[in-house]
Design a protein around this nucleic acid. Structure first.
Lengths: 340, 340
DNA sequence: ATCGCCAGTTGAAACCTTTCAAAGATGCAA
DNA sequence: TTGCATCTTTGAAAGGTTTCAACTGGCGAT
């Protein structure tokens, strides 16, 4: 094909095809303006030389990029990949391609990715940030790269964001448990420094006190992370409580915790939901596929991604763009783990 | 910061700092060659103007990029995100950043991403391709972008690849079941057009005939995809078999299938492993966290990513690079789902 | 004084593409 | 035959950075 030569450029293609440089560019960008025979000649030359358009040069001149990036907190969490799927979908409609970057919940990595993406002049950045109030998020927008915060509510109005009402989600979960007759409930989640956990806990408390139940019968079991392993640990702690104070139901701040709790509970010979009812959060695919299908609070994940993309595109292309905060409503999906 | 101005370049920074353009570039690329006071002046100017280096221009001139890309088959499959973690790790050591692209098992999308990445002149491409024999993979290398195939063995020697010995993996799984005394076993997986599935099935057959067992007591239950849902369906089909021909153990081509099968089996009141022993493949995190912890064939996922990255970097930087095919050895992790 | 050396600094050239005004070709009507 | 309109092609300029050979000024050695 093109074994040793350093690099094939439009110039080479033009020479080979016996046309001018501008014509090659026209074939690339406005093929309709080029006569059929010329176009064929040029395309043949490209194929023969193994020409690959240099995107850096293109972008430098044309000024705009064809990619959006989504910086996720944890690529291994199915929740984020589902959101990403929504992003891909609507990015595709606008002829944009998606790059996924993984900050691994690390502020330094997040920052480095943001720098790189700004330097690449991507069309826009979607991000689920480690800390939604961090200064550098605002800097990005200030320097001209559109940015939308995903899955975190924004305090200020100076940034676009899409999120789900986590307080309401917490409410739904606990109201459901109250409806099922539970009067001793555990909230399992943490650390509380995570915004989502805080909000879901708050919603749980609100539902509890609205029902006139005593605050001390809603137990906070705090975990170090939102993982399966931590869920199992929480199960052990629950089992260790004296019987009369032991909750008959648990609301977990996400599905990974709930799955761990479920496993520990079944594994130690107790029954779900007879001995312990469980509600998760996120409704990831593994929730319905669990040994006991999990009741969970569903977030419109794809929609989240879709909307975030639309916002970022608007910010990139619409000069009259105004920063918008969109909040979606979660929905309780009741399954065996609370219904018996 | 930098509200209306079109775009801040090195030139603006130079003017503001009262130095030449070349000095600004030196601050950016060889800070040691610049005197302390000058450096500070320039850095201050950058901050004040909100300067963001234009990566397109940088790359155009410098000729090389700072990113590698990993094109995965399915971003929602934990297996791939685990591999990606390995990639991130060793890419970081070489000062490279990772972009993850999702082909969604779609050949057209895969192609489009490959084109885009070549045009971007990324340092290298890792890919788990839809079809490892596709012509366009070789084209990429022919045109000068290093590329490594991940998790598929390569026939030809004209491409780098890292993979795990899937025939051996299939062997290990079935030998384990034979050791546990099973004489009626089902292989669940499909479609067989997927290389991995074919290899695992082959390994299973080899182990079976090596043990002198009759071919007809190793049942092939073929699925349309490697998903939880298909696993549940397979469970129903198993249950429908007449009792005397019904397998007492199942080897699933991946963990998602195994989890679905596990769920269906437990859900219909049968016991694992007493009524049905189950072996999965991949050993994703959810395998050990399942209601009945799953025996599974573990692949060195992180190592896969790590090695692939090293190969792609070698191909990018070492002029004497020779294409290498690395094969790892899988390992059986026995858990409750076969041990009781 | 002069020389040579060195650290620090300079600015033009190069990287490869796209854009656009202008030139060239073609066809048709007058 | 000329003029005009339409369609195609041309080539120079521009875009922001890095590189590199050349330059500057200061300093110690001669």
């Amino acid at each position: 094909m093109n074994p040793s030569s350093r690099s094939v450029g439009v110039k080479d293609v033009a020479a080979r095809a016996g046309v001018s440089l501008g014509t090659v560019s026209n074939v690339l960008n406005r093929p309709d303006r080029v006569s059929e025979p010329t176009r064929v000649k040029v395309e043949t030359a490209m194929r023969e030389l193994g020409f690959v358009r240099n995107e850096s040069a293109r972008q430098l001149r044309a000024g705009h990029s064809r990619v959006v990036a989504y910086v996720v907190l944890d690529a291994a969490n199915p929740f984020f990949t589902d959101v990403a799927q929504g992003v891909e979908l609507s990015a595709g409609l606008a002829d944009l391609w998606l790059f996924i970057c993984n900050s691994s919940n690390n502020a330094d990595r997040e920052r480095a990715y943001l720098d790189l993406l700004q330097q690449q002049r991507v069309q826009g950045i979607l991000i689920t940030p480690v800390d939604p109030d961090a200064e550098h998020l605002r800097d990005v927008v200030g320097r001209g790269t559109p940015l939308v915060v995903v899955d975190r509510t924004q305090q200020g109005l100076d940034l676009c964001s899409v999120a789900v009402d986590d307080v309401l989600g917490g409410r739904l979960a606990v109201e459901h448990l109250i409806d099922r007759g539970h009067t001793q409930v555990a909230f399992i989640g943490g650390p509380l420094s995570i915004g989502q956990v805080r909000d879901r806990w708050q919603g749980a408390q609100e539902a509890w006190s609205d029902a006139g139940l005593p605050a001390e019968s809603l137990h906070l079991i705090s975990t170090a992370a939102l993982t399966v392993v931590e869920g199992r640990g929480a199960g052990e702690r629950l089992a260790g409580l004296p019987k009369r104070r032991r909750p008959t139901a648990a609301f977990c701040a996400n599905d990974l915790l709930a799955l761990g709790l479920l496993q520990q509970t079944i594994g130690s010979g107790r029954l779900v939901p007879e001995d312990l009812a469980i509600v998760g959060y996120d409704d990831i695919e593994f929730a319905s596929a669990a040994a006991v299908p999990l009741t969970s609070v569903r977030q419109p994940r794809q929609e989240l991604g879709r909307t975030a993309t639309e916002l970022v595109i608007d910010e990139a292309t619409n000069p009259k763009h105004v920063h918008t905060q969109v909040t979606f409503t979660p929905e309780l999906v009741a399954r065996t783990s609370t219904l018996g």
